[in-house]
Amino acid sequence: MDVFMKGLSKAKEGVVAAAEKTKQGVAEAAGKTKEGVLYVGSKTKEGVVHGVATVAEKTKEQVTNVGGAVVTGVTAVAQKTVEGAGSIAAATGFVKKDQLGKNEEGAPQEGILEDMPVDPDNEAYEMPSEEGYQDYEPEA
């Protein structure tokens, strides 16, 4: 019985440690998101679009440190934060509304985080759909 109880105690310690790591990862992701939003706020009209992409990228980098179902929630929060940063930029006159959601080359930025393969159960990952990809044929 002692062996059984000791095993359960060790398992509990492992769960607590994993929860603490997840909590730490979420806190880091939130900190990076805040950094990115402050970065966007300090940019001029020309830099705002690039700044919004930076927020998304920093958040995406930190999301990889967070495991399990938390990833889905962090990704949703990050996307809403990026959308909010863009709205703030438009409201303050840093950028025109028609410039939001495009990178410096004018290509749409939507789907940055949505296409990231995420499995809350950590069982399997699927690649994003290939609808947006084109076949590449090298020139002879």
Score class of each variant (00 low, 15 high):
1 M>S: 00
3 V>H: 15
3 V>P: 00
3 V>Y: 03
4 F>M: 07
4 F>N: 00
5 M>D: 00
5 M>P: 00
5 M>H: 12
6 K>H: 04
7 G>Y: 08
7 G>V: 14
9 S>W: 15
9 S>V: 02
9 S>L: 11
10 K>C: 03
10 K>V: 07
10 K>I: 13
11 A>H: 02
11 A>T: 07
11 A>W: 12
12 K>F: 07
12 K>S: 07
12 K>L: 13
13 E>N: 14
14 G>R: 14
14 G>P: 01
16 V>Q: 04
16 V>G: 06
16 V>L: 09
16 V>M: 14
17 A>R: 15
17 A>H: 02
19 A>W: 12
19 A>R: 03
20 E>W: 11
20 E>Q: 10
20 E>V: 06
20 E>L: 01
20 E>G: 04
21 K>P: 00
22 T>Y: 03
22 T>K: 00
23 K>I: 03
23 K>R: 07
23 K>P: 01
23 K>H: 03
23 K>E: 00
24 Q>P: 05
25 G>F: 14
25 G>N: 12
25 G>C: 15
25 G>S: 12
25 G>V: 02
27 A>G: 05
27 A>L: 13
28 E>N: 08
28 E>Y: 07
29 A>L: 09
29 A>F: 02
29 A>D: 01
29 A>S: 04
30 A>R: 05
30 A>C: 06
30 A>V: 04
32 K>N: 03
32 K>D: 01
32 K>E: 00
32 K>C: 14
33 T>Q: 00
33 T>E: 00
34 K>M: 14
34 K>D: 00
35 E>Q: 07
35 E>A: 06
36 G>Q: 04
36 G>K: 10
37 V>D: 00
38 L>Y: 09
38 L>H: 06
38 L>E: 06
38 L>F: 11
38 L>G: 07
38 L>R: 13
39 Y>T: 12
39 Y>Q: 08
39 Y>L: 03
40 V>E: 00
41 G>N: 01
41 G>M: 10
41 G>R: 09
42 S>L: 05
43 K>L: 13
43 K>G: 02
43 K>W: 15
44 T>N: 02
44 T>A: 10
44 T>G: 11
45 K>M: 15
45 K>G: 06
45 K>N: 03
47 G>D: 04
47 G>A: 15
48 V>T: 03
48 V>W: 11
48 V>H: 01
49 V>T: 14
49 V>R: 13
50 H>L: 14
50 H>G: 09
51 G>I: 13
51 G>E: 01
51 G>Q: 03
52 V>M: 02
52 V>E: 00
52 V>R: 03
52 V>H: 01
52 V>K: 01
53 A>V: 11
54 T>R: 07
54 T>H: 08
54 T>K: 15
55 V>H: 02
55 V>L: 09
55 V>E: 00
56 A>K: 06
56 A>N: 07
57 E>K: 09
57 E>I: 02
57 E>H: 04
57 E>F: 11
58 K>Q: 05
58 K>S: 09
58 K>F: 02
59 T>C: 15
59 T>R: 02
59 T>P: 01
59 T>K: 02
59 T>W: 15
60 K>Q: 14
61 E>K: 05
61 E>G: 01
61 E>C: 09
62 Q>D: 07
62 Q>M: 09
62 Q>R: 09
63 V>L: 15
63 V>S: 02
63 V>M: 02
64 T>P: 06
65 N>G: 06
65 N>Y: 04
66 V>A: 07
66 V>E: 02
67 G>Q: 10
67 G>H: 14
67 G>K: 13
67 G>L: 09
68 G>D: 00
69 A>W: 12
70 V>N: 02
70 V>E: 06
71 V>G: 03
71 V>F: 14
72 T>R: 07
72 T>G: 12
72 T>K: 06
72 T>W: 04
72 T>L: 14
73 G>F: 14
73 G>R: 13
73 G>D: 06
74 V>W: 09
75 T>F: 12
75 T>H: 04
75 T>K: 08
76 A>E: 10
77 V>E: 02
78 A>D: 00
79 Q>G: 09
79 Q>L: 15
79 Q>W: 15
79 Q>C: 13
79 Q>H: 02
79 Q>V: 04
80 K>G: 08
80 K>R: 05
80 K>F: 14
81 T>A: 11
82 V>S: 08
82 V>R: 07
82 V>C: 11
82 V>Y: 05
83 E>L: 11
84 G>H: 15
84 G>M: 08
84 G>A: 02
85 A>L: 08
85 A>W: 03
86 G>H: 13
86 G>R: 08
86 G>M: 02
87 S>I: 05
88 I>H: 06
88 I>S: 07
88 I>P: 03
89 A>G: 08
89 A>F: 06
89 A>D: 05
89 A>W: 11
91 A>G: 11
91 A>T: 02
91 A>S: 05
92 T>E: 06
93 G>W: 13
93 G>N: 07
93 G>M: 08
93 G>S: 03
93 G>L: 03
94 F>A: 14
94 F>K: 00
95 V>P: 14
95 V>D: 12
96 K>R: 04
97 K>Y: 15
98 D>H: 10
98 D>E: 06
98 D>R: 15
98 D>C: 10
99 Q>D: 09
100 L>A: 06
101 G>Y: 07
102 K>H: 09
102 K>M: 15
103 N>K: 01
103 N>Q: 15
103 N>L: 06
103 N>T: 09
104 E>G: 09
104 E>R: 11
104 E>Q: 00
105 E>Y: 07
105 E>D: 12
106 G>I: 05
106 G>Q: 15
106 G>M: 12
107 A>T: 13
108 P>H: 05
109 Q>F: 02
110 E>D: 06
110 E>R: 04
111 G>Q: 00
112 I>Y: 05
112 I>H: 10
112 I>C: 11
113 L>R: 12
114 E>K: 07
115 D>F: 05
115 D>C: 07
115 D>T: 11
116 M>P: 13
118 V>S: 06
118 V>T: 07
118 V>P: 05
119 D>W: 14
119 D>C: 06
119 D>F: 12
121 D>N: 13
121 D>S: 13
121 D>T: 06
121 D>K: 12
121 D>E: 08
122 N>K: 05
123 E>F: 04
124 A>L: 06
126 E>V: 02
127 M>L: 08
127 M>N: 08
127 M>R: 08
127 M>S: 09
127 M>T: 08
128 P>C: 12
128 P>E: 11
128 P>G: 06
128 P>V: 04
129 S>L: 15
129 S>C: 05
130 E>H: 12
130 E>Y: 09
130 E>V: 02
130 E>R: 02
132 G>H: 06
132 G>M: 13
133 Y>L: 13
133 Y>I: 13
133 Y>P: 15
134 Q>H: 03
135 D>C: 09
135 D>A: 03
136 Y>E: 13
136 Y>P: 10
136 Y>W: 10
136 Y>Q: 15
136 Y>C: 09
136 Y>S: 11
136 Y>N: 10
136 Y>I: 01
136 Y>R: 13
136 Y>D: 02
137 E>V: 14
137 E>A: 15
137 E>P: 09
138 P>V: 11
138 P>S: 01
138 P>K: 08
138 P>Y: 13
139 E>T: 03
139 E>M: 13
139 E>N: 08
139 E>Y: 00
140 A>C: 10
140 A>D: 15
